[in-house]
């Protein structure tokens, strides 16, 4: 197997150069997809027979929830790469993904709470999904706080990598116990997003919105990653030449 590709991936300069080419495509496609999906979802889909127009929150709530969960999985992958192959770029990715994932976690919680008001008549319900999402936010906060507390880059990188891996082992356990706890306490009967089948005219804009949010996340991650590269490589000739 040819490993040069792998080693190239580890080179920040190579990534900086190649990601510069991706960036315009990511920007245009995420902008177009998100605006098309949201306008479609807001104005051109019929209202839900049960929830009326309030279900239109789904077009941001579901993509944000998906992102919040999968970003943590991506962070755990980056953590494993950091620990096993000691690739600097993986640690940079781990660092920049945490605040983005946390922001989408907050978005998911906020839209869930707003949706809860017309659906359940209350802002917050100790529903299994909302509770798990809240705990996921705690996990994000822990990683961000740990990164801020350790001042040497190397030690912070590995400590955060270990913490992300510990978190990812715990996520299924937490999810299982929260689900179990919720069934015990007989919480809300009407879950927000679980529907037997979604009408296709609602499903299409939702899929577009999910894709758009993922592209947006990739774009923001690349933007932040490029800044992190510049910041860490500020002593190198290529960065100095780039700036001046």
């Amino acid at each position: 197997m040819n490993w040069t590709f792998f080693h190239k991936l580890g080179s920040p300069k190579w990534f900086y150069d190649i990601s510069g080419k991706w960036l315009p495509w990511l920007q245009v496609s995420s902008l177009v997809l998100i605006s098309v999906a949201l306008v479609w979802g807001l104005a051109f889909t019929p209202p839900d027979y049960l929830q009326g127009n309030s279900y239109r929150i789904i077009f941001i709530h579901v993509p944000a929830s998906f992102l919040a969960q999968s970003v943590y999985m991506m962070m755990a992958t980056a953590a494993a790469v950091t620990l096993i192959w000691k690739i600097k770029l993986a640690d940079m990715a781990l660092k920049v993904m945490a605040p983005i994932g946390a922001s989408f976690c907050i978005l998911s919680l906020a839209t869930g709470a707003i949706w809860g008001q017309p659906t359940w008549g209350t802002w917050w319900v100790w529903d299994a999904r909302l509770t798990s999402m809240l705990i996921l936010l705690f996990l994000y906060i822990g990683i961000i706080a740990l990164r801020g507390a350790i001042h040497t880059i190397e030690a912070a990188a590995k400590a955060c990598a270990i913490l992300s891996l510990v978190g990812v082992v715990n996520i299924p356990i937490i999810k299982f116990s929260v689900d179990w706890w919720n069934t015990l306490h007989q919480g809300a009967t009407l879950t927000l997003t679980e529907k037997p089948s979604m009408a296709p005219e609602m499903l299409w804009p939702l899929l577009l919105a999910i894709l758009g949010f993922y592209l947006f996340f990739t774009m923001v991650m690349v933007l932040r990653l490029r800044i992190e590269i510049i910041s860490r490589e500020r002593k190198t000739r290529w960065v100095k030449e780039l700036v001046s």
Binding site: F138, L146, I150, N170, S177
Partner: peptide
């Protein structure tokens, strides 16, 4: 993880409490 952090007590709480939730439940 926080052994080298000055006044890491609060940070330790932030890192550990999410892991305690299943046991508590």
């Amino acid at each position: 993880l926080t052994v080298r952090v000055q006044r890491g007590g609060l940070l330790l709480t932030l890192l550990s409490l999410p892991l305690y939730i299943p046991v508590l439940i």
